[in-house]
Nucleic acid binder design. Structure first.
Lengths: 201, 201
DNA sequence: TCCTTTTATGAATCACTATTCATTTTCTAT
DNA sequence: ATAGAAAATGAATAGTGATTCATAAAAGGA
């Protein structure tokens, strides 16, 4: 059943499981999260989960995929409001941070929980949600270069710079219980990346 | 015994366990690494490990602490060769990357395995090896600002930028089986951080 | 050398929970 | 309404490997 078309009732049940999984994974982490607890939270039997997902790891991966896919679609449409490629790039950056500060558990999912999954680690280099995200960012960067808003620079390196920095900032922020201002940090970083570190003459 | 002064023979035995643990954790990851295998690799009985470490998690954490502490000391003395604060900062950056590319398992340990440990995650905000590392970087940044080599900027943000970017780059590099040039990426990133992204007039 | 204390051993335990599957409930079509 | 199919259930299973601890070896002192 796991792969066939689902009825409305089944779609709802699946969604209930996904939502329960998000909550429980977020609160307890992958290894401490018990299938029985997710099932209880979703109001389904333990076994039901296995009708919709191959196993616990599959559930974790699917949950993350759905979150990211949904977010990417949102981002894409948000960026349609922006005129220039540079505006889109800046907006992406801002929304990227906002996504995580609005939903810290997504940050934790990505920074911590996903890495508990051997399957995820194995597929890391081709893991679609991550690649789509990075690819999207690279496209924006290329456009901004073409437009002349930023100087020509290796696209991959810059995407690593942006994504990596924010990943770390978000991890620090999330694991240190939000003890500093994500927004101020974000702005300082944007300023450095745009203008550079060297004193201005 | 775990906390008392150790005889020479005990120091050797402990070191054998640490070395075995590094190898096995690096090869299999925390959860797949079996205590029995570490013990075999170290030529000690399974139970012996528990005379030197509280449990498997403690072993992981201690292993990482020892690697980082040793590395920080090395870094510190390497930087003594540099004259200006700015040179020290650049040198730190280069050595930081070199550490991970020389010993990819350390990268994996930090990016992946450590996060499997609830104790690590709990102590994250005050986890000494990490704080010392970041603190050291912040000191270098402050000195470079004082010296006038870089413009005044929030120190923490910049340390996040440097450390976070390289963390991500290293993770990508390590999990994607070293398919791009760490060195070129590093240089591009250094150039962006120093000069900024905007076109030069 | 012999006795005491310290250290090491590794087989057996034991707690754990993801997963299965025989049974029950719900749905669908006639 | 009813048979047969599909979906859901949750109690029982089963594999796990970290940790313990009774026993053995080694070290140290007299």
């Amino acid at each position: 059943m796991c792969d066939t078309v689902l009825s409305d009732k089944q779609i709802q049940k699946r969604a209930a499981i996904v939502n329960a999984a998000i909550e429980v994974f977020a609160q307890y982490g992958f290894h401490e999260a018990k299938i029985a607890q997710i099932a209880a939270q979703a109001n389904v039997g333990d076994g039901t989960i296995y009708l919709y997902f191959k196993n616990k790891e599959d559930l974790l991966i699917k949950v993350f995929e759905e979150i990211i896919t949904k977010r990417l679609d949102q981002l894409q449409s948000l960026l349609d409001n922006e005129q220039t490629a540079m505006d889109k790039l800046v907006s992406f950056f801002n929304h990227h941070v906002a996504l995580f500060s609005d939903q810290p558990f997504v940050a934790r999912l990505m920074a911590v929980e996903l890495r508990q999954s051997p399957e995820f680690l194995e597929r890391y280099p081709t893991y679609q949600p991550l690649r789509r995200y990075l690819g999207f960012l690279e496209t924006l960067i290329n456009d901004a270069i073409a437009e002349g808003s930023i100087r020509p620079i290796d696209t991959k390196s810059l995407s690593f710079l942006i994504f990596g920095t924010m990943n770390f900032v978000i991890t620090e922020w999330s694991l240190s219980h939000q003890t500093f201002s994500l927004n101020e940090t974000k702005n300082t970083i944007a300023d450095i990346v745009l203008h550079g570190l060297l004193p201005r003459s």
